[in-house]
Amino acid sequence: MITQLLKQRFETIGKITELFIQFTNSCFSKPFYLDRVFEQVVRLGIGSLSISLVIGIVTGMVMTLQFGYGLEKFGGTLYVPAIVSMSIMRELGPIFTSLLIAGRVGSGISAEIGAMNVTQQIDALRALGTSPIRVLVVPRVLATVISLPLLAMLSTFSGILGGLVIAQTEFNIPPGFYLNKVFSSLSYSDIFGSMFKCVFFALIITLLACYKGFHTKEGTKGVGNTTIWVVVNSSIIILISDFFLTKFLILLF
């Protein structure tokens, strides 16, 4: 039972790795579908703008409230801008945005490809002499790899601004002081680290979604199961891999 489960897991990892290799090969050989990449950036990326903004602002506001009242007892309110901006930039921005994208974009991609699979549209693509990897996988993966770091940055900066509003209204921290502390605590390595994580998470989300979409069976029920599998597994992998990525980035800088 356990060996069978392990075998299945390793098979899945093998197939996802194979998909990643096919994706990489397709990125560096003709034909290119730049218009489809752009179309997906608009659909997946720009479509996620508003929710990224909201999640960023709310996170920044809540974090500032929690840290503000927590540190007030020890007279440490002045440290709030640095703590809030560093935690949002390094962790909360990329993680929350990625989890959000896993839910919104990962489920969307897997449902779309899964539905195409059960209605033989993937077979039709192949029968028409076209590679489904080039037409479906490459545009979606590239679009998410481009969009997710930008969305995370947007979410992070909106979080910092949300924090600024709460810092001034609740703790009387002047905006100039707040921003000065934010800029002096953050470095380029923080921005790079955050974007690096997002690129990694984007690959995880889209490769899992595309893989599961291509292997969807059992009609509409199968499509539902596929989306659940993608959201659950990509969220777990994002959270676990975040620890190792953080450790790696700390060692790197």
């Binding site: 209605t119 033989q120 549209q121 039709a124 192949r126 029968a127 002499g129």
Partner: peptide, 19 residues
């Protein structure tokens, strides 16, 4: 195969049109 599939085409049972 992709080149061959331009010479041998396939009409699917459910048409399999791109929806």
């Amino acid at each position: 195969l992709n080149k061959l599939r331009q010479k041998i085409s396939y009409s699917f049972q459910n048409a399999a049109l791109f929806d």
